[in-house]
Design a protein around this nucleic acid. Sequence first.
DNA 1: CGGTTTTCTTCACCTGGTTTAAGTGTTGAA
DNA 2: TTCAACACTTAAACCAGGTGAAGAAAACCG
Lengths: 192, 192
Amino acid sequence: MFSTLRHHIEKKIPLTDDEFTLASAHFTVRRLKKRQFLLQQGDVCRYESFVVSGCLKSYHTDDQGVDHILRFSVEDHWAGDLDSFINSTPSSFNIEALEPVTLLVIDKPSLDQLYQRVPKLETFFRLLNQNALIATSQRVIKNLSVPASERYQLFLKANPQLVQRIPLKDIASYLGITPVFLSKLRREKPGF
Amino acid sequence: MFSTLRHHIEKKIPLTDDEFTLASAHFTVRRLKKRQFLLQQGDVCRYESFVVSGCLKSYHTDDQGVDHILRFSVEDHWAGDLDSFINSTPSSFNIEALEPVTLLVIDKPSLDQLYQRVPKLETFFRLLNQNALIATSQRVIKNLSVPASERYQLFLKANPQLVQRIPLKDIASYLGITPVFLSKLRREKPGF
DNA sequence: CGGTTTTCTTCACCTGGTTTAAGTGTTGAA
DNA sequence: TTCAACACTTAAACCAGGTGAAGAAAACCG
């Protein structure tokens, strides 16, 4: 349970036993069933959540009622809405379990306290957000420069395991196309 | 010159005179003429650059030779390719001056050293990247959920000053449409 | 000032992706 | 074990936005 988190952090920043014990005391375990919400659009996101097992989707529902998936969070990754978490503003995202999920969650006061007590962890979260920024920037460019058919191929190549686990309509939403069109792509282009 | 940078940092993190003096010693001044490149696709991005005056565009040129603008960097903001800067990998971006530009630049060894000497500045850059991540995530969602015509209106509202300074074709590229189509939108929808 | 380059616009035509609607297959709760 | 809800596919009509080519207007520079 907590060892997963430790291993996750130590991929970037080595910790002493004491540091990790101190850190883990700030997290609490939380479980969600399939289709249960970790966060609902309009609510304030009170927690950053480390995914121990399972898979969630973060998506925005627009004014026409259409969902747009920003990201999938699988085990060994994080879920949460940074904007809402940092600024305590109503979130514009839903975060929903696609499978039964086990999480380690931490709230903002605890995280701030943790930064004070274990400054290394500020570095850790800086690196985490840095990587997320890089990935998100690349996604902006790819959405602009790569046609949907190729974006689908890229997604398949980058996340072969995910495709088996999540509904195609969610992949379509992530790619920015309709399920209908994704279906057409899959029919036309061979190799899935 | 340096006072602009100090004011910029202190919007987030107050600094003592000593801290700022120490910090500013790590930066150097650099000037670019219009159309000059701060970074060329394929090169490693050696510097993070604070824009004292002027304006630049960061864009990726795809394999068909089409440019896609990721961001504009105006005075009191930053320019650079984080991925290439952090990992010393060849950048997939060009950064080009749209106007004569004055920069304060810092290289990676200096920045790492600076984090050691003035830990507050690690917090500063963490906040900076946090905000960039939030903004970029929102852009992903808007590109997926808002039609081009509305995206143009939003851009106008959010950056009224920019529109006077930069060519429309660059706005089109940022919005992910062709200049031809932007021109059509401007004709059809009144109020620019 | 005059010539060159860059930017912006217009038009006719094309295409990638949407919409709606109907049909099949699968899941799951009572 | 049945019925309802959901996931996926197909097809046809349609539309947002792209392409190519060409000219007009600005901006740049010697």
